[in-house]
Simulated scan of single mutants.
Amino acid sequence: MLLEKGRAAYYQSSDTASQQTRQLGIAGIAIVWLLSGGLQTSGINLNDTLLKAAICLILALTLDILQYVWKTATFAIWVRLKESEKRLELSERNVDDQEVGDAPSVFLWGVWAFFYLKIMALILGYWWIFSEMFSRINLS
């Protein structure tokens, strides 16, 4: 397999995982809402387990946004700096076709840290949801 194909496969997989994390996070919040009483006039009754689930799911969605904010900000700054350096070096206005090397690895560490943390938060949120659902099952 060519590196290019391997890279494309993990880009596609990580994109799909991020999309699924978003959808499952929102669905999980809806499940928490339903388990807590939904449209009762007395308000929402979150027990400790459902509160933990809701916090984890909201955290997963927050980490998802932070992953993209981090990636956008760090790469925007890096590209602008490299663009300025190339313009000074080559005395040209358009330097879009110039090679600038790889981005610093610390940028990618942040992206992957947010990626794995959001998935762990989502899994933990669903752990709490299933825990609550199974505690409500009465087999007698």
Rank of each mutant, 00 (worst) to 15 (best):
Y10T: 07
Q19C: 08
A8W: 02
Q40S: 14
L39A: 08
V32C: 15
A17M: 11
T41Q: 15
L35W: 01
S18P: 00
Q20E: 06
S14C: 07
T21G: 01
G6S: 10
Y11E: 04
Y11S: 02
S36K: 13
V32N: 03
Y10F: 15
S36D: 02
K5I: 05
Q12S: 09
D15H: 14
L24C: 05
T21Q: 07
A9V: 03
R7V: 02
L35G: 08
G37D: 02
A17L: 13
S42W: 03
L34S: 10
I26E: 03
G28L: 04
S13H: 09
S14I: 08
S18A: 14
Y11K: 12
T21K: 03
W33Y: 15
S13G: 13
D15T: 14
S13N: 09
G38P: 01
Q19W: 09
Y10I: 12
A27F: 15
A8L: 08
Q20Y: 13
S36C: 08
R7M: 03
S42Y: 04
A30K: 04
I29F: 09
A17D: 03
L34Y: 10
L24D: 01
L3S: 08
S13F: 14
S14T: 13
Y11F: 14
L3M: 04
G38W: 11
L39W: 09
A30P: 00
G38A: 11
T21I: 05
L24E: 02
T16A: 12
E4C: 03
L24I: 03
A8N: 08
G28E: 01
R22F: 15
Q40F: 02
A27L: 15
T41A: 15
A27H: 05
S13L: 12
S42Q: 10
S42L: 04
A9S: 07
W33S: 01
W33A: 06
L35E: 09
G38R: 14
W33E: 00
E4M: 08
Y10D: 02
S18D: 10
Q19G: 13
L35A: 09
S36R: 14
G37A: 07
Q20F: 14
R22T: 07
A9N: 06
I26H: 04
V32T: 06
Q12W: 10
L39K: 05
L24S: 07
L3A: 07
R7C: 00
E4S: 15
T16C: 05
A9D: 02
T16L: 14
R7N: 02
G37F: 09
I29Y: 07
Q20H: 13
L39Q: 04
L35R: 04
Q23C: 05
Q12Y: 10
D15M: 14
G6Q: 13
A17Y: 07
G6F: 11
D15W: 10
Q23R: 15
G25S: 10
I26F: 11
